[in-house]
Design a protein around this nucleic acid. Sequence first.
DNA 1: GCCTGTGAAATGATTCACAGCC
DNA 2: GGCTGTGAATCATTTCACAGGC
Lengths: 254, 254
Amino acid sequence: MATGRTHRPATRSRGIPEATVARLPLYLRALTALSERSVPTVSSEELAAAAGVNSAKLRKDFSYLGSYGTRGVGYDVEYLVYQISRELGLTQDWPVVIVGIGNLGAALANYGGFASRGFRVAALIDADPAMAGKPVAGIPVQHSDDLEKIIQDNGVSIGVIATPAGAAQAVCERLVAAGVTSILNFAPTVLSVPDGVDVRKVDLSIELQILAFHEQRKAGEGAAASDGGVPTAAARNESADQGPDGDMPAVMPA
Amino acid sequence: MATGRTHRPATRSRGIPEATVARLPLYLRALTALSERSVPTVSSEELAAAAGVNSAKLRKDFSYLGSYGTRGVGYDVEYLVYQISRELGLTQDWPVVIVGIGNLGAALANYGGFASRGFRVAALIDADPAMAGKPVAGIPVQHSDDLEKIIQDNGVSIGVIATPAGAAQAVCERLVAAGVTSILNFAPTVLSVPDGVDVRKVDLSIELQILAFHEQRKAGEGAAASDGGVPTAAARNESADQGPDGDMPAVMPA
DNA sequence: GCCTGTGAAATGATTCACAGCC
DNA sequence: GGCTGTGAATCATTTCACAGGC
């Protein structure tokens, strides 16, 4: 779901469906684990289980990449790791900048999985002059005045935004103007970008809200096939919400 | 994408499509912003723009909730805020525990958007005895020995896992056994859970890999109708770069 | 016999386009 | 005249089921 503006038509060349692309990293992770255990081959059934999908979907996904399996046998683990890595563009090095080194930005900078697969944190950028020079995850934070130069000097095309919501759009525009064409946005705001720039967003509170929806539904259907023994959470505070933040309007139309 | 096992059929009652549910928080955020600016009504077109979707989709989404708009006029902002909040289950208070108070866990604990909408961080849990008692975001960290008791005492049904990958499945099992039925997983691993438990995952490295895929594709299609002026990032470190379709594997299949 | 690769069918999501109402 | 609500059409994704190769 690359959002922003009108989302690249995706039609070009032999298109791999977006849904498939989104699963490739999952397969890759499972395969890497197998590779580390020196497992030579794996069946679609086994690999699907390890990746948390069903085998028909996995085979269909792989069929978009080519015929990399062997009938009656399965897939060669190393070979597949290579093919998927190449398809995802992980055989090259992607310098990434993280903008906004608060709690979350620091967590991202420290996140190991980041560096592990072709991604390299090229720079950390923050607007607070007091942060400048301070090392986070071994990398000195640079001031946002120098954002454009940092992007260009490092040939960065992927930027991560971990600023407060209010700053995100402005940061986004500077990143794009400086040459960034892919953005991972952690700020809880909709970014608008020109055509040709991809944005993906990660929003914690959205994920929680989706869970709450399903959770509520489970509770609401109370009678229905009560869970196999798991006691549903005890009394829950029925208040009309709003939490410590004092964020909600509290107005309630009839 | 509620993963895990066979993913609740969603059949029951008047089902709202999963894709719609995933967008409701987006609409809610946009509406809340309008509400704060005391905007009384909004058209599908305006709201859609604010939420980053198109208006037909928004109207279709809302049609699953009921007929809350007025033809010729638009939607009443406060009323919609309330209806969507209710549909998402945000009119009640959801106590949440965060397990794994490393960099990421601490960032989550401090994340304001968390508390802002019906969610309340009821407890922070970590396996490191040295952490016990230390306050993070004003909440003392508790030791994981007490996990079950904490879940039960607080009536928690939503858990957030921010542990290292290796610990995630075990933590998940303890959470589920103690009564948690919705899990937000930040650990880069596939959790398996019994039926009736929802899992959503957030994986930074997966998001980056998806961006890299598209990024590579942009670069590969170089000649194609170069973007409307945005200068593509300068020299990129090419390590193994094959052109599109370069097919020389490092390891040959058996 | 086992397991992949893939057409065909089924399901789900998005977009179109317009009737109906204010 | 403007804007919602929604069937119908289109497009995307998943699942089925089996032919084909090892």
